[in-house]
């Protein structure tokens, strides 16, 4: 019962704040609502027994990436873009196509869930020391992707520095 209250609370919170992110005129408000959406997702991770991902989501997404966003919003001037039209000329076509995509996905899940093995979830204690299990899998089976991810981060760091330089 508590499980369901937690899940539906965070799900509704995430969807409402996601809609707010897309519709707000002020970019700062969008950023604040994005933080809410990411924290609601973190709550869903916790409800799914993913403690390590929960804390990574809070620290890295809500802490790190959002600070980056807010910093860039501070650097670029805001008051000009407040008076401009916020949606592009073909917004109705894009909205229509996106809604068609959403309807297709909904139908696919709604029709296909009878055939998928979406039954009883495995007992929660199989994920029990979640952080230890993640560490063990990450450093045994997925060492190579882990190292590649570190190279990706290095490339992104160099790329960001080069892009933000005074003269490219």
């Amino acid at each position: 019962m508590l499980d369901q209250i937690v899940f539906y609370f965070f799900a509704v919170l995430a969807v409402i704040s996601a809609v707010m992110v897309v519709t707000r005129r002020n970019v700062v408000q969008s950023a604040i609502f994005l933080i809410t959406a990411l924290l609601a997702t973190a709550g869903i991770f916790l409800q799914l027994h993913a403690e390590f991902l929960f804390i990574v989501q809070v620290i890295l997404y809500a802490g790190g990436i959002m600070v980056l966003f807010v910093f860039v919003i501070m650097l670029v001037s805001l008051d000009v873009s407040l008076n401009q039209v916020q949606f592009n000329r073909q917004w109705w076509l894009g909205l229509l196509l996106a809604l068609v995509l959403g309807a297709q996905l909904t139908i696919a899940v709604a029709v296909g869930r009878a055939g998928l093995p979406l039954g009883e979830p495995a007992p929660a204690k199989m994920l029990e020391p979640s952080t230890q299990l993640v560490g063990r899998v990450l450093f045994s089976e997925y060492v190579l992707p882990f190292e590649i991810a570190s190279i990706l981060l290095l490339v992104a760091m160099i790329g960001a520095v080069v892009m933000a330089k005074k003269k490219i």
């Binding site: 799900a11 897309v22 959406a37 670029v76 592009n88 894009g94 909205l95 996905l105 909904t106």
Partner: peptide
């Protein structure tokens, strides 16, 4: 399946944001 519905709802809202907004941020 409820998690899947939540996920595809959020994904669709994200797609709407990408294709309709003008602000790059």
């Amino acid at each position: 399946s409820h998690y899947l519905f939540l996920s595809l709802g959020l994904f669709t809202i994200g797609v709407i944001g990408v294709v309709t907004r003008r602000n790059v941020i």
